[in-house]
């Protein structure tokens, strides 16, 4: 019973945080562009509107199951990331999983996307997926290298243990292993589809990218999973580098600070081309990652 209530609470928390964060993002973006922008609830309204629209088109069963796979991926990711430390609540099934499982779950989304869009046969959708998978090639390596660095530093794959090791500001991953945070930050922005690396949806360039064929309810599902997935990733980085959170307010504060950092980066930089993005990932974050591995393995006293 506790597990069921806890899981539902986690899903609800990630959803609410998701649409409020994105609503804030849209408002902040508007203010930067010297306009008023929508209300902070705008993403919630958009999402609900899509859920109550009709969905008349079909492209075979895979077109329907693709969003469901992505949604299931988002739900499981949320459930395997512990939201709080030293608490019975908002844990989900995180004691049964570890960082390696979460790494696998993060790839479920793009995979489901590719399946669904491939069956729709829309050239813009396929183009979007191709760009997405190309970018994935660039961002996965430094991202996972960064996560591996964290595992190496704490010599465990358990997110709980990593959180427990960071008691106090001086022991935050951000302070003890800043280079791993730098390695992760840019691929993290890319995996959130933030601006310099938003080659997948690429507004104007490939219309709506992979989502070009989705409208109505399936788009609502995709939007929901996107918001929840973003929160899951934010919370994961908070757990790994900012010492986790002991209560929900601290969690929101820390996740919001991180979100603000990525948002500011994406608001300032315009979109890169796909090959530029991949080149960049293979050069800067990956180079930094290799350097960090050398430092962590050969000079353990330096990073620990």
């Amino acid at each position: 019973m506790h597990a069921v209530v806890d899981s539902l609470a986690m899903i609800a928390v990630s959803y609410v945080m998701g649409f409020l964060f994105y609503g804030f993002y849209r408002q902040l973006n508007a203010r930067v562009q010297r306009r008023w922008g929508p209300s902070i609830w705008q993403n919630f309204f958009d999402n609900m509107k899509f859920f109550f629209k009709s969905e008349t088109l079909t492209h075979g069963p895979m077109f329907f199951f693709g969003p469901m796979i992505i949604m299931a991926g988002a739900f499981t990711t949320v459930l395997f990331v512990p939201f709080l430390k030293d608490s019975d609540w908002l844990q989900g099934f995180s004691q049964y999983g570890n960082l390696i499982l979460i790494i696998y779950l993060l790839v479920v989304g793009p995979l489901g996307n590719a399946l669904a869009v491939g069956s729709s046969g829309n050239p813009f959708g396929v183009m979007g997926v191709t760009r997405g998978l190309t970018r994935l090639m660039g961002l996965e390596v430094p991202f996972f290298l960064g996560l591996a660095l964290v595992m190496l530093q704490h010599e465990t794959t358990s997110v709980h243990a990593i959180m427990a090791a960071q008691d106090g500001l001086a022991n935050w991953g951000l302070v003890t292993n800043p280079i791993a945070f730098c390695v992760i930050l840019l691929p993290f922005i890319a995996s959130q589809n933030g601006s310099p690396f938003d080659v997948v949806g690429a507004p104007v360039e490939v219309y709506a990218g992979p989502r070009v064929e989705f409208g109505g309810r399936l788009l609502g599902v995709l939007m929901t999973q996107n918001m929840m997935m973003s929160i899951a990733k934010l919370v994961l980085v908070v757990d790994l580098f900012m010492g986790g959170a002991t209560n929900i307010l601290v969690l929101i504060g820390k996740a919001f600070a991180l979100f603000l950092l990525t948002t500011v980066v994406s608001m300032v930089f315009p979109r890169l081309k796909t090959e530029q993005a991949v080149d960049f990932f293979w050069k800067v974050p990956l180079g930094l990652g290799v350097l960090a591995v050398i430092l962590t393995v050969w000079l353990p006293s330096w990073s620990a």
């Binding site: 508007a30 306009r35 922008g37 929508p38 709506a208 409208g215 109505g216 788009l219």
Partner: peptide, 15 residues
């Protein structure tokens, strides 16, 4: 700034 009213552009007729 039509986004004040929740009015924003969609790329495809589906959306």
């Amino acid at each position: 700034d039509a986004e004040r009213f929740g009015v924003i552009g969609a790329a495809t007729p589906r959306q």
